[in-house]
Amino acid sequence: MAQHDPALIDFEASCLPEYGQSYPIEVAVARIDGESRSWLIKPPPRWQTWDWSEEAESLHGISRAMLACDGLPPAQVFAEMVAFVGTCEVYSDADLDGFWLEVLCEELDEKLPFPIRFLGEWMAARGLTREQVDAALEEARRRLPKAHHAREDAKRLALVVRLLIEEQPA
């Protein structure tokens, strides 16, 4: 993996911010080399009084019981995530991923470990056309159709980037 290769990040949350005070419950990072990791986040006591959406749970399939049983402490998730990202530049397709990274860092009294850039900026900087992006998205959705699961969403975005890189002349 080359230094500063893109990595894609995706969070799932207790609810969307417009529905209440939300917190991250899962984070996944996928690198374009095909490696990916995901972590369930055990809510610290302070978050347990925050909002939870049944609608969000039905989308991502993560319950409070799963987090209590299988979730990892936020500090462990943070440390492992930062180590996995390494020197990659981190991208996302949604501003909310940056918001939930901030919530996680705030809980741990940590500085943001890396900026999360908007994936569209990466595409625009390479002069990619809408047709190229749409074709890569369609192929990635065909190969990885499962949605609203952090690891699958991050892997799909990483595949889009890899397909676009492979398409460009060296």
Results as ranks from 00 to 15, higher is better:
62 I>V: 09
36 S>G: 04
100 W>T: 02
68 A>T: 12
66 M>E: 12
28 A>M: 12
33 D>E: 09
36 S>V: 01
55 E>D: 08
80 E>C: 04
152 E>F: 14
94 A>T: 14
47 W>N: 01
25 I>N: 05
131 E>D: 15
109 D>P: 03
40 L>T: 06
130 R>V: 15
91 Y>H: 05
115 P>F: 01
151 R>M: 06
155 K>Q: 15
61 G>R: 07
145 P>Y: 02
94 A>E: 14
131 E>M: 09
60 H>Y: 10
136 A>P: 07
91 Y>R: 01
28 A>C: 05
141 R>E: 09
118 F>S: 15
47 W>C: 10
96 L>P: 04
51 D>T: 14
93 D>C: 06
144 L>H: 08
141 R>D: 03
45 P>R: 06
116 I>Y: 14
106 E>T: 11
41 I>F: 11
16 L>E: 04
156 R>H: 09
75 A>D: 10
30 A>F: 02
18 E>L: 09
49 T>H: 09
69 C>M: 08
116 I>G: 08
34 G>F: 03
109 D>T: 13
144 L>E: 06
134 D>I: 05
57 E>M: 15
64 R>G: 11
60 H>C: 10
51 D>L: 00
90 V>T: 10
53 S>R: 01
108 L>R: 03
91 Y>G: 05
43 P>K: 04
114 F>A: 00
86 G>D: 13
66 M>Y: 02
114 F>W: 03
150 A>S: 13
37 R>S: 06
45 P>A: 13
111 K>Q: 12
146 K>C: 09
148 H>V: 11
31 R>A: 12
87 T>A: 05
113 P>C: 05
52 W>M: 02
34 G>H: 08
136 A>S: 02
115 P>H: 01
153 D>R: 06
112 L>W: 02
122 W>N: 10
101 L>R: 03
151 R>I: 06
127 G>K: 08
127 G>A: 07
51 D>C: 08
95 D>C: 06
97 D>Y: 07
72 L>K: 11
99 F>A: 08
109 D>E: 15
133 V>A: 14
17 P>H: 02
156 R>W: 11
150 A>M: 04
144 L>V: 06
135 A>S: 14
75 A>K: 02
40 L>M: 02
89 E>T: 15
31 R>I: 04
137 L>P: 00
107 E>F: 00
31 R>Q: 12
122 W>V: 01
100 W>C: 05
157 L>D: 13
53 S>V: 05
90 V>N: 00
90 V>C: 01
71 G>V: 01
34 G>T: 03
70 D>A: 04
112 L>V: 07
111 K>Y: 01
67 L>V: 06
121 E>H: 11
80 E>S: 03
76 Q>N: 04
28 A>R: 03
99 F>P: 01
68 A>C: 04
143 R>P: 00
21 Q>W: 08
139 E>F: 09
79 A>L: 03
49 T>D: 12
46 R>F: 12
27 V>E: 02
49 T>R: 10
154 A>L: 02
92 S>A: 15
84 F>E: 05
30 A>K: 00
55 E>K: 10
46 R>G: 03
64 R>M: 14
28 A>W: 02
29 V>G: 06
103 V>L: 13
140 A>W: 08
